[in-house]
């Protein structure tokens, strides 16, 4: 009881701070500071139609590299905690009978979902979307495969090879930016192209393809680790 009232007092104090923040909020009319620069010069400097992509990949590219690193660390810590004996999972995976309709429709849907994921991250600089969203869609396609077609296996060697390749190439593209252009992760190492076409905005499509592959394989790896743990007993 004492504990609950303490929690209540804490929440009320927090709510008072939030209320004063809410009452003092005045909506601004115009862009200010660095956002204004992004909006005014983003088209000339980066050449991406989607300004959010321009901010994520180029202006704040270093943050994105850190984000990808955090995701990689999470995936490796999870893999470390859920140590699975890969050698013996052939015999004890009980092949359950899943519904025929689910299996057949999954066989049609999975390639389409992977295609949608690839579309989302290739067009990340033109339309809403990008590497993270596309990677998540690809990972959902693999989740559907794990649920509907449990006899299919996914090779951890291929997953980790794709992941290391894309992570390494991302850093290499960043270093190329120092050598060929203004700084780390500058996208002008390739020509900016015509505004609004698929092959434009310098290195942004390339970086988004790498991020998409990396995020997709990482999330698939996390879920396949959890799934193999489930088959363990």
């Amino acid at each position: 009881m004492l504990k609950n009232s303490l929690i209540l007092i804490l929440i009320l104090g927090f709510a008072a701070i939030m209320l004063s923040l809410f009452l003092s909020y005045t909506p601004s009319e115009d862009l200010k500071g660095v956002s204004k620069h992004y909006a005014e010069y983003g088209k000339e400097e980066v050449g991406a139609a989607n300004l959010v992509s321009a901010v994520v990949v180029t202006y704040r590219g270093f943050d994105t590299l850190g984000e990808v690193t955090i995701l990689f660390l999470t995936a490796s810590v999870i893999g470390f905690f859920l140590k699975v004996n890969h050698s013996k999972d052939d015999e004890n995976t009980a092949v359950k009978k899943y519904s025929e309709i689910l299996g057949t429709s999954a066989k049609i849907l999975i390639p389409l979902m992977v295609l949608l994921g690839v579309y989302v991250f290739i067009n990340g600089h033109l339309t809403p979307g990008g590497g993270f969203q596309g990677g998540a869609i690809i990972a959902s396609a693999f989740v559907l495969m794990f649920i509907a077609l449990p006899q299919r296996k996914i090779s951890h060697k291929v997953l980790s090879a794709v992941e290391s390749f894309s992570g390494l190439s991302y850093v290499l593209i960043g270093v190329l930016g120092i050598i060929l252009a203004a700084g780390f992760l500058d996208n002008q190492i390739l020509s900016l192209g015509t505004f609004g076409s698929v092959l434009s905005a310098g290195a942004i499509p390339l970086i988004y393809i790498l991020i998409g592959l990396k995020v997709g394989t990482e999330l698939t790896g996390i879920i396949s680790n959890l799934k193999e743990l489930q088959n363990e007993q």
Binding site: D30, L31, V34, S35, K36, Y38, A39, E40, G42, K43, A49, N50, L51, V52, A54, V55, L126, T127, P128, F195, G196
Partner: peptide, 21 residues
């Protein structure tokens, strides 16, 4: 939204879009 997909958004962008940051 900060997505410059039409020609009218590409001129005088800063007064037409929300904050992308």
């Amino acid at each position: 939204a900060p997505i410059l997909d039409s020609a009218e958004l590409q001129t005088d962008t800063a007064s037409k879009i929300v904050d992308p940051l």
